[in-house]
Nucleic acid binder design. Structure first.
Lengths: 105, 105
DNA sequence: ACGAATCGTAAGTCACGACTTACGGTAAGT
DNA sequence: ACTTACCGTAAGTCGTGACTTACGATTCGT
């Protein structure tokens, strides 16, 4: 699962709500679905997508299942954006240089 | 336009190809669409989405339009992931602490 | 052992968005 | 001026994915 899956997973607003709920720590499915405007099975399906994307870790705890944000998955996406940002800045600087050279002539 | 729009924009594979093409520097629409497996109007529509999300800057250059990656837009999304990563790590450390305390008893 | 709680999966519906072709508008070339 | 190149927009089609309800599988409580 590469960073692409993480981006696709985070593109859905409902899944971002789930991520926000998990910021403070792990939660079982019921607690995540509570207060949300979609059904619990829908939340389960979203949790599946987030897990497959490497953004969530699952830990079966007796009767229920605890979901938590996986730092590694977030970090993978984070690193991709870092390289993209570097390239964008470099291209920006290069364009500014050529612009200056063009004006100096 | 917040970071959410940037995520949605980057979720599409065709739009990620466009981003990759612009990593080295600004390009006109024709050069971007060249070699891609979708029509040029489709590329135009994608460029529109990326621009609205704040990920691309447009600079009309005579006859054509130069598109370039906007560092600010990338940075906004980058900062969101940084905070998310921080929270994920903190939650992870807290869970490990409670786990250790539970075992110590 | 039996009922209740917690959760995942299957099947089916429906809206949204990623395409296409067709067209109009502006700048460059001759 | 007239054609050509470059690009955005409009309208319409079609697949994908985000929901729902219904069901089955475990685990806890009594």
């Amino acid at each position: 699962m590469a960073y692409q899956d993480a981006i696709v997973a985070l593109a859905d607003p409902t899944r971002r709500v789930i991520i926000e709920k998990l910021r403070r720590g792990p939660l079982p499915v019921g607690a995540i679905a509570a207060g949300m405007d979609v059904s619990r099975p829908a939340v389960s399906q979203h949790l599946r997508v987030l897990s497959d994307a490497g953004l969530l870790d699952v830990k079966p705890e007796g009767n229920r299942r605890l979901y938590a944000i996986a730092p590694d998955g977030v970090d993978e996406l984070r690193r991709y954006l870092d390289t993209l940002w570097d390239d964008a800045l470099a291209a920006f600087a290069r364009a500014a240089e050529e612009k200056a050279k063009g004006n100096a002539k």
